[in-house]
Amino acid sequence: MEGKARPWGVKINSSWCKRCGLCVAFCPRGVLRLDDEGKPVVADIARCTGCLLCEMHCPDFAIAVKRSEQGGRVKTQAVSGK
């Protein structure tokens, strides 16, 4: 193993999300939860192991799991659909 790996970050593009909830259902560690609108938000990034199950089961291309740039920063991005 190399030095201590940076923590994971989960980026959610809520403008592409169609609220199917699969990401929350697939996360084995309870990292994500659904907000009042039924869209995912990060509840506990520290528990993320980077398994990518949420990203690869998201039918809307709306989730990106990556090593975080600085610390476990979490973004919920609203990208315009142009």
Binding site: S15, W16, C17, K18, R19, C20, L22, E55, C58, P59, D60, F61, A62, I63, A64, V65, K66, V79, G81, K82
Partner: peptide
């Protein structure tokens, strides 16, 4: 989807037309 993958998408065409939960 990671930015390394969105480069293969025409992001300006999203969100897609498929139903919620479609595979």
């Amino acid at each position: 989807m990671g930015s390394d993958l969105t480069k293969y998408l025409r992001v300006e065409k999203l969100p897609h037309i498929w139903c919620a939960g479609c595979g």
